[in-house]
Design a protein around this nucleic acid. Sequence first.
DNA 1: CTGAAAGCGCTTACAG
DNA 2: CTGAAAGCGCTTACAG
Lengths: 349, 349
Amino acid sequence: MAQKIKLSTIAETLGVSTATVSLALRDSPLVAETTRERIKEKARALGYIYNRRAASLRTRRSGIIGVVVRDIINPFYAEILGAIESELDRSRQTFILSNHYDSVEKQRNFIETLLQLGGDGVIMSPAIGTPAADIRLAEENGMPAILVARSVDNVDVPTFRGDDAYGVSLATNHLIGLGHRTIAMVGGSDHTSTGRDRYRGYTDALDRAGIPVDESLRIPGPRTKQGGFEAAVHFLSMRQKPTAAVCWNDLVAIGLMSGIARAGAIVGRDVSVTGYDDLEEAAIATPALTTVWNRQADVGRSAARALLDKLSGSSEPNGLHLIKPEMRIRQSTGPLKLAVLHGREGRQA
Amino acid sequence: MAQKIKLSTIAETLGVSTATVSLALRDSPLVAETTRERIKEKARALGYIYNRRAASLRTRRSGIIGVVVRDIINPFYAEILGAIESELDRSRQTFILSNHYDSVEKQRNFIETLLQLGGDGVIMSPAIGTPAADIRLAEENGMPAILVARSVDNVDVPTFRGDDAYGVSLATNHLIGLGHRTIAMVGGSDHTSTGRDRYRGYTDALDRAGIPVDESLRIPGPRTKQGGFEAAVHFLSMRQKPTAAVCWNDLVAIGLMSGIARAGAIVGRDVSVTGYDDLEEAAIATPALTTVWNRQADVGRSAARALLDKLSGSSEPNGLHLIKPEMRIRQSTGPLKLAVLHGREGRQA
DNA sequence: CTGAAAGCGCTTACAG
DNA sequence: CTGAAAGCGCTTACAG
């Protein structure tokens, strides 16, 4: 590569000071218009590249925002990220992305790297078991944090997530309304606030309908398509013979539906399945998935805006912002048909 | 936040020079072990945060690597990224990710931002229409580029991608071997090297089998599940009555299968479908998808290693590195059954 | 409207 | 083995 072009190169070429060049390139009204144009023109001609490290060393603003989630391969996070990206893009922030795969250590490394780079802020969907101290590490070093999708106890930062208990109760009520009484819950765990809230939504709905809660109808664990697919065997062989499944998320539901289909049963007729999130692919699965819209885009957008507001000095209220999910009824759920699933007597549609 | 701790803070506290602190923190053997330990201990105690901007301003190495692909929501790219991530992680590089959504402008902005941040290198799956000049912009400013999944003409940088023509010909041959003669090609376009190569693989296989190529059996465009799903109507109403479809990728294939299933036909029996990539979910789709393993992990890993090698001074050979795909035969393809699909006369399995 | 000078927090020769 | 000093490329008061 050729000689590196810097501010002083432009300044010397044009016979002005570096201060003038610096101001001109940032469109300062302090510089006369003609001077400004000459400078910008020359910068372009020389192929000048602004050195943000040098600038941010001085200004203490880097224009970098960190985002860390469990796993971007999960479309749920990908959809949140999409909204964050478009929001940050328009205010010309660069964002650095990382997965933590629920490793608190990996997450902490990321926060430290971000601090070293002078990150202006961080949006995180915290790893399971994140200690409050890790969030404070960021905050105390002048890097505000915003939480999405999951909460952390004993930490007072803006948190945006869906109202999980309410959302799952919507799905459960929908199934109860269709006549189902033996309803399994597939996926998730008690290790996250989300997991606890979703299970509570399920049991609350059963309670309100006067249906006894049976712990053994819960298949904890699955959170991916693969997991849902593998859970199908367990689900189909339960001695209680559930006629419906409330799934942890759409991925689990889609995997479960695939497993059920392979076993020869028809979802939506023989057995009903609900998802959670309303991912893009929920509507085009066969059968189309009945699910709960978790408003990923709203979560991402709100979080990004909250951070930008904080950076620009306005005082965003801390604390939890619950976003109300909505039911999406499609073909994977249908009215209870007795004795169809587990004593299939050859009846055809 | 408290007073910012810097090297000089530690130096003063301990009564040594900043040079010594700097060397000690980086484990230089030039510093006596006891001094080194005292310094590291103190740094920890004070909560010192290394300022990488300041350091990189001096060293001209940032530890930042950029990665830009079309769209990380696409699992194909997500799988490549996963491999890049684990490779870069182990050499403690930070990576900055961006989507370009096939906008050359968005991609150029990203390259410029990366240059401003002093990025050490960039791995890109170039946007459609990327001019050679944009790659040169990076290279000429000392930031080496590596290409994945797609090539750019007139540019001599290491490029890693699957052998698309060969891969699609594998899928096409498989269908021909099952007796299919009227085979549609669903998805993709001629705007990318990949698109042209895959179509060529399809026509080459037909040619070799003495089957005339019929342009109207091609449904260009789809590249997502949604696209494949929507193409089902077109596919099922073609006057040539194709008995099989070679799909652009697994997403298109899975969407197409869903659309075909909704129309009441059975994939793998009435009509055969092949995918491309062998995404994780291909094996758990119902029916399990016959596809071509595109070795995403190998592509990502090779690209990351090539870049790291280049950064450490070894001279990685430029040019194209084709990675050989492999066939994965599952349940979505089966032997031709005449007159089943388009004149369904009620025969049951 | 423009310039001279200091300083952001590191690292790197250079001396001792 | 350790220290004093210069410099990476910007921006920011301060003067004029």
